[in-house]
Amino acid sequence: MKKIGVVGAGTMGIGISQCLAQVGLEVILVDISDEILNRSKREIIKNIRYSALFNKGEQIESVDTVIERITFTTDYHLLSDIDFLVENVTEKYEIKKSVYELIDPICPKNCVFAINTSCISITKLASSTKRQDRVIGMHFMNPVQMKPVIEAIRGFHTSDETINVAKKFLATMGKQMILVNDLPGFVSNRLSHLLMNEAAFVIQDQVAQPQDVDNIFKECFNHAMGPLETADLIGLDTIVDSLDVLYESYQDSKYRVCPLLRKMVDAGHCGRKSGRGFYDY
């Protein structure tokens, strides 16, 4: 593999593009506006500089060298000769579906599509393409640069060959996969989103303050981050969208969105990316 397509220049697309460029791969990073792409470029530059600062003993390439490997573009046709694709657009089925309908005829027929989604069915999205056997779920964790393992999801038609290609792709990034089967939410988010949603109910019910909730998980359970800190990092809007997908998929009231969470998103308080969530940033 030499050239990788990354669709979606949000938090996950930024992290994935940086990791790929830092291991020497050419990256085509696509999004819908130059404003988004310029912001992603600034963020990648900042992240590379931080890497150099915190890893002084390691040989790290210059910012310019890494950035030159990334093409920032709004033109999907630049994906016409890629070897592998990772899609990271917003967690809404109709938007993702429209992207696959657009890129499927553009990308090479042997190119594997990796869907980076929190909850949406891989099988359902794969049906928007004419390569269902070459579609796999890849749920990267945030921050991408620091997580050595991802949750991979086998869709109904995903072939063994596609799984092997995906393993080789991840090995190039220095990562491994844990392979699970396809049902909405998979393993990680069927569990973690219940935890974050219930933590929001605890705040809504005035049982405790956000810092106390998170400290219980960090100090008592030895978690690296508490559920509300994690929600702020992921983005409360993404949490709400994912819970909506889980509720629609399973028709189970345990996935109902906490009213406080939806109210915060409506107010524009989406966590780190907006400067305010359960905490101020």
Rank of each mutant, 00 (worst) to 15 (best):
P105L: 02
C119S: 14
K109H: 14
A114S: 11
E101T: 01
I115G: 01
Y100Q: 06
A126Y: 10
F113G: 03
C119T: 04
C107E: 08
I106M: 13
P105W: 10
N116L: 09
N116T: 01
A126W: 10
I122Y: 13
T117K: 13
E101A: 07
I120A: 07
S121Q: 02
N110V: 00
F113N: 05
V112P: 07
I120R: 10
V99C: 04
A114K: 13
L102Y: 05
A114H: 08
S118N: 10
Y100K: 10
K96Q: 03
F113E: 02
I115A: 07
I115H: 11
E101L: 15
S118M: 12
I95R: 13
I103M: 07
I106Q: 12
K124M: 06
T123R: 15
A126F: 09
C119A: 15
V112Y: 09
N110D: 14
P108F: 09
N110K: 15
A114W: 08
T117E: 03
N110H: 15
K124S: 06
C119H: 05
V112E: 05
C119M: 14
E101S: 06
A114F: 09
K97C: 03
A126N: 03
I106T: 00
T123W: 14
C119K: 13
N116K: 12
S98Y: 06
Y100A: 04
E101M: 12
T123K: 14
D104P: 08
L102I: 02
I115T: 01
C111G: 04
K97A: 13
V99K: 14
I103C: 09
I103D: 03
K109F: 11
L125K: 05
L125C: 01
C107N: 07
A126H: 07
K96T: 00
A126V: 01
C111V: 01
P105V: 00
S121A: 06
K97R: 15
S118L: 13
C107S: 12
I115W: 07
Y100P: 07
I95A: 14
P108V: 02
K97V: 00
F113Y: 11
C111D: 02
I95S: 11
I120Q: 06
I120D: 03
I95E: 07
S118W: 11
K124H: 09
D104G: 05
I120T: 00
I103Y: 11
T117N: 05
K109G: 04
A114M: 08
V112L: 14
K109Y: 13
T117Y: 09
A114N: 05
K124W: 04
I115V: 11
V99Q: 08
C111K: 14
K97S: 12
I106W: 15
N110S: 14
S118D: 03
I115F: 15
T123F: 12
C111A: 13
